[in-house]
């Protein structure tokens, strides 16, 4: 008898469609679909995907409660030996869905779960709560991810003891296990120090936690005299995308003058974002960057002034380090221009 597995994937990996199909509700299918066949092959008959659950990424994000309830009901009825989700690589909503549905299955049904994604995926925030295999940031890494996930999945199904995160390929989940090292501490410490002095690579045994949080700034006192700027990760650009901001993994941001622009019309503006269905944003770009409303508030005197420039990029698989760099740079420009507050919109 082989172990029974349920696999969760999104509309893209089910080959239903891209962003235009991201709204689809959960669907239950028999057997393996898409990446599931790679797991089945790796398990070689010892385990098998009995059902695949497919859900659109936007649907899960926008109807999380309903999606979870439906998926949990199916998984409960199937009662598999393991629930596996993804891998999601660097797809943000997909990773978020994988980690959250896996956590729900684990907590509500007590079934072992496993997922996989890139370390910067927002879903990886749950790595302390669900087992997440670290993958590359795009689907080209499937060949490497599938065997690692399959092997770890098998350990979970057999109830075997897991190795350390660096041995079994999952993200560090904060659990410490006692064991005897081959060399004593003083020797290891001296070795590490010698490597450090020689500029050679070394691995600390006690990484410091990094809490990158910025304390909130004081509130704006008098909005009626404040200059407010609009920024977005939703990819709104002048029609034709003059600076060629990439539709994913953006390498730069755009700075565009909107002095005298009353409202963003579809003949002059559009979105460059490749990570959501662009139809609605292209029909009326104010749906992402609300210039029309800000102008009304400016006329009414509710705000002092809408800043003459907006800053924009595409937040789609964009490296955190890049996003950080973009905003650090334009924040200085905003500051020099005397901007008092910023509204950032995200899709």
């Amino acid at each position: 008898m082989s172990y029974r597995v349920v696999h969760y994937i999104n509309q893209f990996f089910a080959q239903i469609g891209g962003e235009e199909m991201a709204h689809i509700a959960p669907e239950l299918r028999e057997g393996a679909v898409g990446p599931g066949t790679a797991f089945d092959a790796a398990w070689n008959g010892e385990a098998k995907i009995v059902n695949t659950i497919i859900c659109g990424d936007s649907h899960f994000a926008e109807h999380e409660k309903e999606s979870k309830a439906q998926i949990l009901a199916w998984v409960k009825e199937i009662n598999p030996d393991l629930f596996i989700a993804g891998p999601a690589f660097n797809a943000g909503r997909y990773g978020y869905a994988c980690a959250n549905i896996a956590l729900a299955v684990k907590e509500e049904l007590g079934i072992p779960v496993l997922t996989g994604m890139y370390e910067e995926n927002p879903g990886a925030d749950l790595k302390d709560k669900v087992l997440i295999v670290a993958t590359t940031n795009n689907a080209a890494g499937m060949r490497k991810a599938a065997p690692t996930m399959a092997k770890l999945a098998m350990k979970l199904m057999k109830g075997e003891k897991l190795g350390a995160s660096c041995e079994d390929g999952y993200m560090n989940n904060g659990i410490r296990v006692n064991f005897f090292e081959k060399e004593r501490g003083s020797r290891r410490a001296v070795k590490m120090l010698l490597n450090k002095l020689a500029d050679k690579p070394f691995t600390t045994e006690y990484p410091m936690p990094s809490f990158d949080r910025v304390a909130p700034n004081p509130a704006v006192k008098d909005l009626s005299h404040a200059v407010v700027a609009l920024c977005t990760s939703g990819g709104i650009v002048p029609k034709g995308n003059p600076d060629h901001i990439e539709s994913s993994s953006a390498s730069h941001y755009g700075e565009y003058c909107i002095a005298g622009v009353e409202n963003l019309t579809p003949d002059k503006y559009e979105t460059a974002h490749g990570g959501y269905d662009p139809v609605y944003a292209n029909e009326d770009p104010d749906r992402v960057l609300p210039v029309d409303v800000m102008r009304e508030f400016e006329r009414e005197g509710k705000i002092g002034k809408l800043h003459d420039y907006f800053y924009t990029t595409v937040g789609n698989g964009t490296a955190v380090a890049n996003a950080k760099k973009f905003a650090a740079e334009y924040a200085q420009k905003l500051k020099q221009a005397g901007v008092n507050a910023v509204i950032m919109t995200s899709t």
Binding site: A61, E62, G92, R93, Y96, P122, D125, D212, R213, V214, A215, P216, N217, P218, A219, V220, C231, S233, T313, G315, A323, K324, F326, A327, A328, A331, Q332, L334, K335, V339, N340, A341, V342, I343, M344, T345, S346, T347
Partner: peptide, 29 residues
């Protein structure tokens, strides 16, 4: 990006659909 704007000393509000992601990213408002 919100964090970098906040770090520069400008109060910022994040308008977004998936608010848990915004929490992860570290937006304050």
């Amino acid at each position: 990006m919100v964090k970098e704007i906040e770090r520069a000393g400008i109060p910022v509000v994040h308008v977004c659909t998936v608010t848990p992601i915004s929490m992860t990213v570290g937006a304050n408002r």
